[in-house]
Design a binder for these strands. Structure first.
Lengths: 193, 193
DNA sequence: ACTCTTTTGTGTGATATACAACAAACGTAT
DNA sequence: ATACGTTTGTTGTATATCACACAAAAGAGT
């Protein structure tokens, strides 16, 4: 959702507090054992207030994921627009900011992936990235004679798998390195040939 | 403080936010150049809300100082009550928690002391500690034949000076070490002779 | 089966805060 | 001295959140 700067400060603050509290509790407790009261207490927010913004804890989980994935995507499309006509560097920069975003929000991603609900989260992130890649490939239009669906599927799963590996291994390499590596892998395999 | 009724969560949150924001801005900007708007923006709070709790920025500064000094004092009288009848260890433990409190709130103390208004803050902390020491000495009643005022003054200034040195030199020793050292200095000079 | 406790949604009136506008005081440059 | 932008307190209205209460649902233990 667009984070309109016009929203009431109280709303922004409580949402942030709830999100942060939810993530904290999530990293400590199995999701099914998390109670709304846990979150409200941690967020220092009245329990009823949570129901003012989210229908239940499942909704909270989903909106939390959506929120982060949106931010993640926009964090790298943002830098894409800064440099207008670059091709190669543009992509690598976008990758860098993506890895950077994950690094900055490591708590979120790692607890999401550590959860038993891993599959749910992986599906979501894959779906998000797939559509994002789709746009990119459509715009480039340089993949003549190849099955588009196949390319997308291949790229997305490979990418998500790489992300997951990177996250679950506590980010053994810096974002810049990862961006370079992933890019050369993409290059070698299909995308710009 | 005095009223046992629980305070509204909103009040607690905004006061915390304002305090934190004020400290942040304070550590970046000279006090006279700080504007209420700076603080409200940083705290993500409406400007008018600050006037709901503080009359002006001077009041805010004072209440902020009072708040921290109160917490500092109670942080070490608290541990004093845990162990009822201990004498020596009791005092050292109290000292430790005091140094620990300062360490945990280093940003506050160091920016207070770094300010041009250093003298103001030093006076306040000295006054607080003086009355605290006064109580202690009164209760102990083992300083026969010595001028009480003199002892208090001596102890307080020495102590505050030590604190100031410790803070301004980025806490070169851990709280435990400081507590031991300060205690032996007290012992050697007057208090329990 | 039955208690007992916890959690969940939902609702009500009270209140803290947001927002926007305002006049006065202040600072600063011309 | 004058003009002009900035900061300050203050106000009035709207609303987000509070505390609290309640009944239904869900678990947990016997």
């Amino acid at each position: 959702m667009a984070i309109g700067n016009k929203t009431d400060r109280r709303i922004l603050r409580t949402k942030e507090a709830i999100n942060r509290a939810f993530l904290e509790v999530f990293s400590e407790k199995e999701f099914d054992r998390i109670t709304i009261n846990d979150i409200s207490e941690r967020a220092n927010v009245n329990r009823g207030t949570i129901y003012l913004h989210y229908t239940d804890k499942y909704d909270l989980l989903n909106r939390c994921i959506d929120d982060h994935l949106d931010k993640m995507i926009s964090s790298c499309t943002l830098t894409k627009f800064i440099q207008e006509k670059v091709e190669e560097n543009e992509a690598i920069e976008a990758l860098k900011s993506l890895f950077n975003y994950i690094q900055e929000n490591f708590l979120f991603f790692s607890s999401m992936l550590s959860s038993q609900k891993t599959s749910v989260f992986r599906e979501r992130i894959q779906k998000t990235l797939t559509s994002s890649i789709q746009e990119k490939i459509d715009m480039q239009g340089i993949n003549q004679g190849m099955d588009k669906e196949l390319i997308i599927q291949f790229t997305a799963t490979a990418f998500v798998g790489t992300l997951e590996w990177w996250i679950m291994n506590q980010m053994p390499h810096p974002p810049e390195y990862m961006a370079d590596q992933v890019w050369t892998l993409f290059e070698r395999n299909n995308i710009n040939s």
